[in-house]
Design a protein around this nucleic acid. Structure first.
Lengths: 341, 341
DNA sequence: GTGAAAGCGCTAACAG
DNA sequence: CTGTTAGCGCTTTCAC
């Protein structure tokens, strides 16, 4: 074969297989979908010819004909301002988990990036018929808009906290419990000045903060306003916000960060000031990202059961697609004690 | 609207818009694709009605009719043995980068997970007409198979090292240069016993090892076989292999890890033995993943220019799809000195 | 400027 | 058991 052979070889189609097999297209179709109405012999020969041509049924045409759609949309938010590659590792392990679950169920996954401010675009994968529904990671302050989409008939599953009056399905950990466990762990270790890092406007983070407050209340410990630090999720901005906060040399003996990414950034910032973790300041993260165990020191954190998450989200979505009512699912949440606290 | 309103509202189609607008489907089609043959007035009214119905052209049907396909396949490898969520953050930032590039060019991205041993499946997204071509991250020892796919007519772009006699396009950094820069940096700092961590059977890693050797040769330093450690890419296995190696308390004053993930695992392992980085052992990683800067200590590493990578891979793919010959592209490669070395 | 009609690649009645 | 036929939702000649 010549090295320059880049002829636009037409892809084979069912008619080609039919011709070579000496049968009709209908027979090929049936043979390839293993219909019981076809003789073993015919099936064999059709399959063989299909193989030899590297023929695979055109999924687009099939979907069109059947009116079905075995593709799940997965939306990655971005902020126009930051236009940077997705950086939160938790987010990306979710993507992997959903990809697995989708594959297991014989579906495909269409990934699209959507400007967080143009949230209507989330629906476009569905409305243009490319996906049978959409999975979204994180609520981005947009509860109202998401509700509107769902009401409009877009099958929608969101990873995040359960809010009241939702028309879409939510899958998520028990964020309040997670916040509570993390904080209690720190309190039990004797910490009394525990900083909370995160953006409490996000439903998930807000719930974690509630857990933080609850744990304090339970042990009768005072909560200090100055220790609640508003930190965005995105890596670069987070680093700025945290460095800025630490530069004020706040008095604290522990940190509860609302994501592992934030915890890691904080630990690094503390290290730069010569403050040791966990000796001087104990730190608990959230998510248990793959790298948490490899961090230095290994991160004490709250697990999110990523594997399970993908399955639950996909199942929730397929349920909606099948016409059932969106149902929320809560995943188990627990603390993993490593060395950072 | 009732809370239980989950009627399977039929998605609107062009005929609905046409009826409401009092025109034919052909006119709607032309109006929505902004054909010059349609009067402004008609366009306005058609667009308005489409909006009000949340109507979007069915992309599947459109593709079928036009014989086009604006979807790029992106393949995530996995090993049946490990069936774990993707964990290398570098890999995942590549996904984000490709997603961006694809979106910018008006394409979509279909993500699928494929068993690394069933590499033929890589082609399926293309052969079933769902994608116009496929992007693959990493060569997985499968050079021959990839070549066969490309020869078979599958537009294929692979992130990795350039090998001789390729029928597919490769995009990648200059791995040998990267290995050279990393090693030279360590040698210049006075290190003489530099361990190399990675699986040199992979083309990319092999090239980095060559750079490592070249740097040694250049300064007339001896290369010690015992310092070349075979470590797999996947997080869990890597951790085992590295811990096992460090348990032998090897004499070394520096480590060149062939990925940041490996570097982080190694630093953590060293820390567990009370060995300080960079004081006792200097460490250089590879990739410059988002977290490298937040690690403790911040990682000295080789950049991979992820943003650029996505664009180059997509462009290379679209070139092939357009019928041109696959062309390889090499990205700039440089060392980022932080604190780990 | 707009409509009628054909057909993209496939599947599912309906016949035989 | 297999073939014929119609049509999924759309675009595009070709007419008017």
């Amino acid at each position: 074969m010549s090295e320059d052979d880049w002829s636009p070889r037409r892809r084979p189609q069912m008619a080609d297989v039919a011709r070579l097999a000496g049968v009709s297209r209908a027979t090929v179709s049936r043979a390839l979908s293993d219909s019981p109405a076809i003789s073993e012999q015919t099936k064999q020969s059709v399959r063989e010819i299909a193989r030899s041509l590297n023929y695979t049924v055109n999924v687009g045409a099939k979907n069109l004909r059947q009116g079905t759609n075995r593709t799940v949309g997965f939306v990655i938010p971005y902020q126009t301002s930051v236009r940077q590659a997705v950086s939160d590792p938790f987010f990306l392990s979710m993507l992997g988990s959903v990809a697995d679950a989708v594959t297991d169920r014989g579906f495909e996954m269409l990934v699209s990036r959507v400007d967080a401010t143009a949230i209507d675009q989330v629906a476009s994968a569905f409305e243009s018929g490319r996906a049978c529904g959409v999975i979204l990671i994180g609520q981005w302050h947009q509860h109202g808009q998401l509700n509107r989409l769902a009401r409009r008939g877009v099958p929608l599953v969101v990873w995040g906290g359960v809010l009241s009056r939702q028309s879409y399905a939510t899958v998520g950990g028990d964020n309040q419990l997670g916040g509570y466990l993390a904080t209690r762990h720190l309190l039990q270790r004797g910490a009394r000045q525990i900083a909370f890092l995160g953006n409490a406007d996000l439903p998930e983070v807000g719930l974690r903060l509630q857990g933080y407050l609850k744990a304090h209340a339970e042990c009768g410990c005072k909560v200090l306003k100055r220790l609640q630090v508003n930190v965005p999720f995105a890596a670069e901005q987070a680093r700025q916000a945290i460095d800025q906060y630490l530069a004020t040399r706040p008095r604290l003996d522990a940190i509860f960060a609302s994501s592992d990414l934030l915890a890691m950034i904080a630990i690094q910032g503390l290290g730069a000031q010569g403050i040791l973790v966990p000796q001087d300041v104990a730190v608990v993260g959230y998510d248990d990202v793959p790298m948490a165990a490899s961090f230095n020191p290994p991160l004490t954190t709250i697990t999110q059961h990523v594997e399970l998450a993908g399955e639950q989200m996909v199942d929730a979505l397929l349920e909606i697609v099948a016409g059932r009512k969106p149902s929320n699912r809560t995943l188990p949440t627990s603390l993993i004690a490593r060395q950072s606290a």
